[in-house]
Amino acid sequence: MENAPETPTTPRSVSRRQFIQGVIAAGVTASTATYLYRGSGSVLSKSSLAGSTERLITINVNGQARHVDVMKQETLATTLRYKLGLAGTKLGCDRSECGACTVLIDDVPRYSCSVLTHTVRDGKVITIEGLAAPDGKLHPVQQAVVDHQAFQCAFCMSGFIMATAGYLKTNPNPTRAQLAHGISGNLCRCADYNKILNAMMHAGELMRRT
């Protein structure tokens, strides 16, 4: 591995450096720092190759940097729910087929059950817990849901809210058909689609007003 190519400086390799800095801060003597900075290929273990991944990472969730130990195979839904305690994100199918786990990654609705946490180190994750303003004022989509009492059991609700919040950013004034298509990656087991759409159309109105 002596000749392993160096990883170019990218956000991903930066977070690796930050990790190493963390290790230094945690007690590795300063004299080893020059050695540690030589490159990623030979730093931590003899067997690491360009592109190898550390478990201890920092991810940005709801505006906060969260340090967390993430398994290589761990999905974002697992990290959010079981490591960070953000259980507002629901797991329905765990197979990209229902939308209950929808969160925003860089403002785009994605199925967190089907995203490796290690792939969002450079992204900004927003979950249902992070949607309201810091002063507690509900996000317009949340307010519209309350106004319309749109859901029944509401298991699908946080997914629908996140999908709608993401979609309305790309199309703030959709027709009902456009909105239905835009949030068609979410299922409701209680099949309350009409009421959900009423609320989400109202959400668009509230957003345009603010």
Binding site: P5, P8, T10, S13, A50, S52, K72, C93, D94, H118
Partner: peptide, 28 residues
């Protein structure tokens, strides 16, 4: 079948950022 397990079985994960590094890994 579509049983929900806790997490996927373990694998080693590489996240190269260049084609050259990717090809080296795939070759290895």
């Amino acid at each position: 079948m579509a049983l929900i397990h806790d997490v996927m079985p373990a694998f080693e994960l590489f996240q190269p950022v260049t084609v050259a590094d990717t090809l080296a890994l795939l070759d290895k």
